[in-house]
């Protein structure tokens, strides 16, 4: 009886131990995959890009009932927002018409000055509008899925904007779906220009609502409320795209409040900027 018990205990222990060793082995393989950054190799990169469509298709089928409920709640919220917007529009209509006149006259003035200075004209670019399929903006690596891909002329590093400002850039492209990395992502680095004096800095994502600007030499001269735009350096983003405004200044950091709120967006614009030559960001 004792021998039988011992044998049973040993076989149980053996089988349990084997499973634990196998799990530890798999953990080692997974860790190795992280540390070797296997996703940066061309094969895995292309596999990852080409699998977005399939993964999204499978996931969307599984989660369709939850999505349906979520969409219904969003619709109700949208109707309420629409009503508020109409009321706001009625109030601001007169003011807006004055601002519009001012903008037109400013644009004409700039064109005149450019002609007088004999300046080279900035490169013109058009855009493609796309629907946001999924928003993963609250993770450490913030990204979004959009419903256009290589078949629609999307390419890697295309800048993504909303109606009010910059959102990020395209990082993975499948035939009909693409993934965009947002400016709040911890690995996002964007060259920006601050205030009308064009202080140069780098906008760095913090996994928070407000990214920070670093490497700015004249940080003492930056004021809260100063406008932040893309500088155009690096060739990925065109210059003068609105990003946000300075919201907070602390010891060694400057925080930027973004103009765009990705959570409230249903559509985005992908700018077809052909100076897109660098992959260093």
């Amino acid at each position: 009886m004792r021998t039988f018990k011992n044998q049973f205990f040993q076989s149980f222990l053996g089988s349990q131990l084997r499973k634990i060793i196998f799990t530890v082995l798999l953990i080692s393989i997974s860790s190795l995959l992280i540390f070797t950054q296997v996703e940066k190799t061309e094969t895995i990169k292309s596999f990852r890009s080409s699998s977005i469509g399939i993964v999204y298709f499978i996931s969307s089928i599984v989660t369709s009932p939850i999505k349906l409920i979520e969409n219904s709640i969003l619709r109700i919220d949208e109707i309420k927002n629409l009503y508020d917007d109409v009321q706001q529009y009625k109030k601001e209509r007169i003011l807006e018409s004055e601002s519009f006149q001012e903008l037109v006259s400013l644009k004409l003035k700039i064109a005149e000055y450019e002609q007088l200075l004999n300046l080279n004209k900035d490169q013109e670019y058009n855009f493609i509008t796309s629907r946001v399929l999924a928003d993963l903006s609250d993770k450490y690596f913030s990204s979004m899925l959009i419903n256009i891909g290589a078949n629609n002329g999307v390419f890697e590093n295309m800048p993504i904007t909303g109606p009010s400002g910059l959102l990020g850039r395209v990082t993975e492209v499948d035939d009909n779906i693409s993934r965009g990395m947002l400016v709040t992502d911890v690995s996002s680095r964007i060259p920006v220009s601050v205030s009308e004096k064009s202080f140069q800095g780098i906008l760095i994502g913090q996994n928070k609502k407000n990214p920070r600007i670093e490497f700015i030499k004249e940080s003492g001269q930056v004021r809260i409320g100063d406008l932040v735009t893309t500088s155009g350096k690096g060739g990925i983003f065109p210059p003068y795209i609105f990003v946000g405004q300075i919201a907070k200044k602390g010891e060694g950091y400057i925080e930027v409040e973004l103009f765009e709120d990705v959570n409230s967006l249903t559509h985005v614009r992908l700018i077809n900027f052909s100076n897109n030559i660098s992959n260093d960001f």
Partner: peptide, 30 residues
């Protein structure tokens, strides 16, 4: 791996996380 493909994390991140919790489960059983 499937999770990493969805949320665009580095490949191997979610696997490590999931397997660590499985290991905790197995050890607590053990």
């Amino acid at each position: 791996i499937y999770s990493d493909l969805i949320i665009s994390y580095p490949i191997g991140y979610s696997s490590t996380l999931f397997l660590l919790f499985l290991l905790m489960n197995q050890l607590s059983n053990f």
